[in-house]
Amino acid sequence: MTEPMLTARDLHLSFGASPALAGASVDVLPGEVLALLGPSGSGKSTLLHCLAGILVPDRGEVRYRGSRLDSLSDELRSGLRRTDFGFVFQFGSLVPELSAVDNVALPLRLGGHRRRESEARALEWLERLEVADVAHKRAGEMSGGQGQRVAVARALVSGPRVIFADEPTGALDSLNGELVMDLLVGAAREQGSSIVLVTHEPRIAAYADREVVIRDGALAAAVVA
Protein backbone atom coordinates (compact mmCIF):
# COMPACT_ATOMS: atom_id res chain seq x y z
CA MET A 1 0.00 0.00 0.00
CA THR A 2 1.24 3.48 -0.90
CA GLU A 3 2.29 5.56 2.10
CA PRO A 4 0.48 8.91 2.24
CA MET A 5 2.49 12.05 1.49
CA LEU A 6 0.50 14.00 4.07
CA THR A 7 -1.82 12.86 6.83
CA ALA A 8 -4.07 14.83 9.13
CA ARG A 9 -5.59 13.07 12.12
CA ASP A 10 -8.43 14.37 14.27
CA LEU A 11 -7.59 18.03 13.77
CA HIS A 12 -9.29 20.57 16.00
CA LEU A 13 -8.78 24.31 15.65
CA SER A 14 -10.84 27.21 16.97
CA PHE A 15 -10.62 30.90 16.22
CA GLY A 16 -11.77 32.40 19.52
CA ALA A 17 -15.02 30.68 20.43
CA SER A 18 -15.68 29.52 16.85
CA PRO A 19 -14.55 26.00 16.01
CA ALA A 20 -13.17 25.86 12.42
CA LEU A 21 -12.01 22.24 12.54
CA ALA A 22 -13.72 19.61 14.70
CA GLY A 23 -12.03 16.27 14.18
CA ALA A 24 -10.93 16.47 10.52
CA SER A 25 -8.80 13.57 9.22
CA VAL A 26 -7.52 13.11 5.68
CA ASP A 27 -4.68 11.46 3.72
CA VAL A 28 -2.99 12.92 0.64
CA LEU A 29 -1.28 10.27 -1.51
CA PRO A 30 1.86 10.89 -3.61
CA GLY A 31 0.96 12.33 -7.01
CA GLU A 32 -2.77 12.53 -6.40
CA VAL A 33 -5.04 15.50 -6.89
CA LEU A 34 -7.35 15.74 -3.88
CA ALA A 35 -10.26 18.19 -3.83
CA LEU A 36 -11.58 19.59 -0.55
CA LEU A 37 -15.23 20.55 -1.06
CA GLY A 38 -17.78 22.09 1.25
CA PRO A 39 -19.92 25.16 1.86
CA SER A 40 -18.46 28.53 2.86
CA GLY A 41 -17.24 28.44 6.43
CA SER A 42 -17.08 24.63 6.55
CA GLY A 43 -13.35 24.65 7.38
CA LYS A 44 -11.89 23.48 4.06
CA SER A 45 -9.41 26.38 3.72
CA THR A 46 -8.46 26.00 7.38
CA LEU A 47 -7.74 22.31 6.77
CA LEU A 48 -5.57 23.22 3.75
CA HIS A 49 -3.65 25.76 5.87
CA CYS A 50 -3.06 23.12 8.59
CA LEU A 51 -1.86 20.56 6.01
CA ALA A 52 0.54 23.18 4.62
CA GLY A 53 1.91 24.06 8.06
CA ILE A 54 0.65 27.65 7.82
CA LEU A 55 -1.72 27.10 10.75
CA VAL A 56 -1.05 24.84 13.72
CA PRO A 57 -4.04 22.86 15.04
CA ASP A 58 -5.06 23.10 18.71
CA ARG A 59 -5.31 19.30 18.80
CA GLY A 60 -4.55 16.38 16.48
CA GLU A 61 -1.52 15.87 14.28
CA VAL A 62 -0.27 16.54 10.76
CA ARG A 63 2.43 14.33 9.29
CA TYR A 64 4.45 15.05 6.15
CA ARG A 65 6.28 12.00 4.72
CA GLY A 66 5.82 10.26 8.07
CA SER A 67 7.19 13.04 10.32
CA ARG A 68 5.23 15.42 12.51
CA LEU A 69 4.76 18.77 10.80
CA ASP A 70 2.59 20.54 13.35
CA SER A 71 5.17 20.30 16.13
CA LEU A 72 8.02 21.80 14.07
CA SER A 73 9.21 25.34 14.86
CA ASP A 74 7.93 28.26 12.75
CA GLU A 75 11.33 28.45 11.09
CA LEU A 76 11.42 24.78 10.09
CA ARG A 77 7.86 24.91 8.78
CA SER A 78 8.71 28.03 6.75
CA GLY A 79 11.72 26.22 5.30
CA LEU A 80 9.58 23.25 4.35
CA ARG A 81 7.02 25.49 2.68
CA ARG A 82 9.84 27.02 0.62
CA THR A 83 11.48 23.74 -0.44
CA ASP A 84 8.71 21.15 -0.61
CA PHE A 85 5.41 23.01 -1.04
CA GLY A 86 3.96 25.31 -3.69
CA PHE A 87 0.99 27.65 -3.28
CA VAL A 88 -1.68 29.15 -5.53
CA PHE A 89 -4.36 31.34 -3.98
CA GLN A 90 -7.43 33.05 -5.40
CA PHE A 91 -6.04 36.56 -4.95
CA GLY A 92 -2.75 38.17 -4.14
CA SER A 93 -0.48 35.29 -5.01
CA LEU A 94 2.03 37.60 -6.72
CA VAL A 95 4.28 40.29 -5.25
CA PRO A 96 2.94 43.43 -6.97
CA GLU A 97 6.29 45.25 -7.07
CA LEU A 98 8.00 42.43 -9.00
CA SER A 99 7.76 41.44 -12.67
CA ALA A 100 6.31 38.06 -13.62
CA VAL A 101 9.74 36.53 -14.14
CA ASP A 102 11.00 37.88 -10.80
CA ASN A 103 7.88 36.54 -9.07
CA VAL A 104 8.45 33.07 -10.50
CA ALA A 105 12.18 33.19 -9.71
CA LEU A 106 11.50 34.25 -6.10
CA PRO A 107 11.25 30.76 -4.52
CA LEU A 108 14.54 29.79 -6.21
CA ARG A 109 16.29 32.99 -5.07
CA LEU A 110 15.04 32.43 -1.50
CA GLY A 111 16.40 28.88 -1.76
CA GLY A 112 19.88 30.25 -2.53
CA HIS A 113 19.99 29.78 -6.31
CA ARG A 114 21.91 32.31 -8.43
CA ARG A 115 19.98 35.08 -10.13
CA ARG A 116 20.79 34.07 -13.70
CA GLU A 117 19.90 30.41 -13.18
CA SER A 118 16.72 31.34 -11.30
CA GLU A 119 15.56 33.68 -14.07
CA ALA A 120 16.31 31.13 -16.79
CA ARG A 121 14.24 28.49 -15.01
CA ALA A 122 11.48 31.02 -14.34
CA LEU A 123 11.34 31.88 -18.04
CA GLU A 124 11.10 28.20 -18.96
CA TRP A 125 8.08 27.85 -16.70
CA LEU A 126 6.46 31.02 -18.04
CA GLU A 127 6.83 29.58 -21.55
CA ARG A 128 5.35 26.30 -20.43
CA LEU A 129 2.39 28.11 -18.90
CA GLU A 130 2.03 30.12 -22.14
CA VAL A 131 2.64 33.52 -20.50
CA ALA A 132 6.22 34.27 -21.59
CA ASP A 133 4.92 37.44 -23.29
CA VAL A 134 4.18 39.02 -19.89
CA ALA A 135 7.52 38.02 -18.34
CA HIS A 136 8.53 41.62 -17.69
CA LYS A 137 5.14 42.96 -16.68
CA ARG A 138 4.04 43.48 -13.10
CA ALA A 139 0.92 41.87 -11.63
CA GLY A 140 -1.18 45.02 -12.15
CA GLU A 141 -0.36 45.02 -15.86
CA MET A 142 -1.62 41.47 -16.52
CA SER A 143 -5.13 40.02 -16.92
CA GLY A 144 -6.50 37.83 -14.13
CA GLY A 145 -5.91 34.67 -16.18
CA GLN A 146 -2.32 35.64 -16.99
CA GLY A 147 -1.65 36.48 -13.33
CA GLN A 148 -2.94 33.07 -12.17
CA ARG A 149 -0.80 31.27 -14.75
CA VAL A 150 2.22 33.18 -13.47
CA ALA A 151 1.21 32.14 -9.93
CA VAL A 152 1.01 28.50 -11.09
CA ALA A 153 4.49 28.81 -12.62
CA ARG A 154 5.79 30.16 -9.30
CA ALA A 155 4.13 27.31 -7.38
CA LEU A 156 5.78 24.72 -9.63
CA VAL A 157 9.22 26.22 -10.31
CA SER A 158 11.02 24.64 -7.36
CA GLY A 159 9.63 21.14 -8.05
CA PRO A 160 7.44 20.91 -4.92
CA ARG A 161 6.14 17.58 -3.69
CA VAL A 162 2.79 19.13 -2.78
CA ILE A 163 0.95 22.09 -4.29
CA PHE A 164 -1.74 23.78 -2.22
CA ALA A 165 -4.32 25.54 -4.36
CA ASP A 166 -7.03 27.51 -2.54
CA GLU A 167 -9.79 28.51 -5.00
CA PRO A 168 -7.19 28.96 -7.77
CA THR A 169 -9.86 29.72 -10.39
CA GLY A 170 -12.30 31.57 -8.13
CA ALA A 171 -11.67 34.96 -9.78
CA LEU A 172 -11.51 33.68 -13.38
CA ASP A 173 -14.12 33.10 -16.08
CA SER A 174 -14.82 29.48 -17.07
CA LEU A 175 -12.40 29.38 -20.02
CA ASN A 176 -9.48 30.88 -18.10
CA GLY A 177 -10.33 28.68 -15.12
CA GLU A 178 -10.12 25.54 -17.25
CA LEU A 179 -6.88 26.69 -18.87
CA VAL A 180 -5.29 27.27 -15.45
CA MET A 181 -6.47 23.85 -14.24
CA ASP A 182 -5.27 22.07 -17.40
CA LEU A 183 -1.83 23.62 -16.98
CA LEU A 184 -1.65 23.19 -13.20
CA VAL A 185 -2.78 19.55 -13.15
CA GLY A 186 -0.82 18.65 -16.31
CA ALA A 187 2.46 20.07 -14.98
CA ALA A 188 1.93 18.63 -11.49
CA ARG A 189 1.30 15.15 -12.92
CA GLU A 190 4.42 15.39 -15.09
CA GLN A 191 6.64 16.09 -12.10
CA GLY A 192 4.74 13.80 -9.73
CA SER A 193 3.52 16.53 -7.36
CA SER A 194 0.37 16.04 -5.29
CA ILE A 195 -2.24 18.80 -5.33
CA VAL A 196 -4.55 19.73 -2.46
CA LEU A 197 -7.29 21.74 -4.10
CA VAL A 198 -9.94 23.80 -2.31
CA THR A 199 -12.80 24.76 -4.59
CA HIS A 200 -16.53 25.38 -4.57
CA GLU A 201 -16.79 24.80 -8.32
CA PRO A 202 -17.80 21.24 -9.29
CA ARG A 203 -16.22 21.50 -12.76
CA ILE A 204 -12.90 22.38 -11.11
CA ALA A 205 -13.28 19.60 -8.52
CA ALA A 206 -13.75 17.19 -11.45
CA TYR A 207 -10.03 17.60 -12.23
CA ALA A 208 -9.27 15.81 -8.95
CA ASP A 209 -8.72 12.06 -8.58
CA ARG A 210 -10.75 12.08 -5.39
CA GLU A 211 -12.78 14.46 -3.31
CA VAL A 212 -13.60 14.82 0.37
CA VAL A 213 -16.46 16.94 1.64
CA ILE A 214 -15.93 19.08 4.73
CA ARG A 215 -18.93 20.06 6.77
CA ASP A 216 -18.79 21.82 10.17
CA GLY A 217 -15.05 21.26 10.40
CA ALA A 218 -15.01 17.51 9.76
CA LEU A 219 -15.24 15.14 6.83
CA ALA A 220 -18.79 14.46 5.67
CA ALA A 221 -18.14 11.98 2.89
CA ALA A 222 -15.26 10.57 0.87
CA VAL A 223 -15.13 8.84 -2.48
CA VAL A 224 -12.06 7.11 -3.84
CA ALA A 225 -11.85 7.25 -7.64
Binding site: P202, Y207, E211, V213, A220
Partner: peptide
Protein backbone atom coordinates in the same frame (compact mmCIF):
# COMPACT_ATOMS: atom_id res chain seq x y z
CA UNK B 1 -27.49 14.88 4.14
CA UNK B 2 -26.37 11.32 3.38
CA UNK B 3 -28.76 11.18 0.41
CA UNK B 4 -27.26 14.42 -0.94
CA UNK B 5 -23.67 13.29 -0.26
CA UNK B 6 -24.20 10.03 -2.16
CA UNK B 7 -25.68 11.94 -5.08
CA UNK B 8 -22.83 14.48 -5.09
CA UNK B 9 -20.29 11.64 -5.23
CA UNK B 10 -22.18 9.97 -8.10
CA UNK B 11 -22.29 13.24 -10.05
CA UNK B 12 -18.59 13.92 -9.49
CA UNK B 13 -17.66 10.45 -10.75
CA UNK B 14 -19.54 11.25 -13.97
CA UNK B 15 -17.96 14.72 -14.19
CA UNK B 16 -14.45 13.28 -13.69
CA UNK B 17 -14.99 10.85 -16.58
CA UNK B 18 -16.25 13.63 -18.87
CA UNK B 19 -13.35 15.92 -17.87
Amino acid sequence: AQVLDAQRAEHLVAMRSLT
